[in-house]
Design a protein around this nucleic acid. Sequence first.
DNA 1: CCGATTCCTCACGCGTTCTTCACGGGCAGA
DNA 2: TCTGCCCGTGAAGAACGCGTGAGGAATCGG
Lengths: 230, 230
Amino acid sequence: MTRILVVDDEPQILRALQINLRARSYEVITAATAKEALRAAAQQPPDLVVLDLGLPDFDGGEVIRGLRGWTDVPILILSGRTQSREKVQALDAGADDYVTKPFAMDELLARLRVLSRRSIRGEDQPEVVIGDYTIDLASQLVTGPDRESGESVTVRLTPTEWKLLEVLVRHPGKLVSQRQLLAAVWGPADHPDSSYLRVYMGQLRRKLERDPSRPRQLLTEPGMGYRFSP
Amino acid sequence: MTRILVVDDEPQILRALQINLRARSYEVITAATAKEALRAAAQQPPDLVVLDLGLPDFDGGEVIRGLRGWTDVPILILSGRTQSREKVQALDAGADDYVTKPFAMDELLARLRVLSRRSIRGEDQPEVVIGDYTIDLASQLVTGPDRESGESVTVRLTPTEWKLLEVLVRHPGKLVSQRQLLAAVWGPADHPDSSYLRVYMGQLRRKLERDPSRPRQLLTEPGMGYRFSP
DNA sequence: CCGATTCCTCACGCGTTCTTCACGGGCAGA
DNA sequence: TCTGCCCGTGAAGAACGCGTGAGGAATCGG
């Protein structure tokens, strides 16, 4: 089920959206402030974001940048500001669409369909291979031969290990900066020390790489980040 | 260069778009009818399509479906029809955005940037060639033949080397002053001595140039700065 | 309440990278 | 020809980043 995060400080708009979206069987989570929004997005990563620019605590642009620091989730801006300057700013900051209030509900829904259509396109590659192991993104399963018996066994990954692996595998071949990884796994807050990363990468390698001390797929790019090489 | 197909039957709009897009160094091809549009798209596949719904020969919806049959190119609808029913139809038919006339040019351009931003993901990343080596800006990867074996190997660049190379490569052919380079790599503080630069340029040349002491692409402009010649 | 798993933190060792300096060569102007 | 200036190159110590092991805190399930 597609999960939508709706951020707006006007309760009646929040309610109207909630009702209409739930009726289309979206899962809806809501936030009324910028802080709430970022926290909610980190805890339950949404597939779509509907964002009002006029929030009480921070500017909506801050939310866009806060999200774009670690996720590519499509963002639709819903705002009362009609000036094209505002629109350009929001779109260039990383938003994907901009609808001005008052708005037609059916148009908004159509635009959301467009966004979810696009974002799903690249994601379907449910199986990835690392050495002897097969990773099934969809069912969150890692299978491979046992160390000695050779039988096919499922490898146990902890939630943190899984999130880390997922981020890397979803950007095959690309370098993923430590910032990105930390934000994706531990939330958008600032993480000055990246020692978690080293620990968990080590654990992943120990579970997935044939020779953990000489990784062939879970590569380190010193000073920059990590890379999953398919 | 990004190629845009603009489809509209009103000459003045066609001209206005053409001028503005060319000024942003897009490559523009135009069509005034549905048939022309489909033919042009087939002959020179565009990276973006701007489409007016009110064409003389066929309905714009036909063009959308005609394109969607074989390509995922982003389509932005530019139409005088403001009814949300029209918008929903077009968006559900496969369009990616919908702007109503009259429109603000800067907003349209911003929306085009959004579309090209999204579509570039996953498709062909910008690659730059230096001698035998290929630089992939998107995934931060440099590949080339090994010095002896000739096999394809990835070249290890340190973070500083990478930053330096990136600045140069992103301004192909242009002269980049030492001030600019120092500021881009080592921060905006003042750097009276430019000896870092010489050291790291040397290292880059040693890793990328066939004859490091006689560079062909990473050129020195004495007293001024450096230049990447493609 | 207890045990097991998972998460977070720290310190150490090692290899790499950064920074700095000195020296030599090419080139232009005096 | 001499003299600066600027650039390339090599070397060396310092600083940094990474992998690893271990231990305690937190969490979860029974």
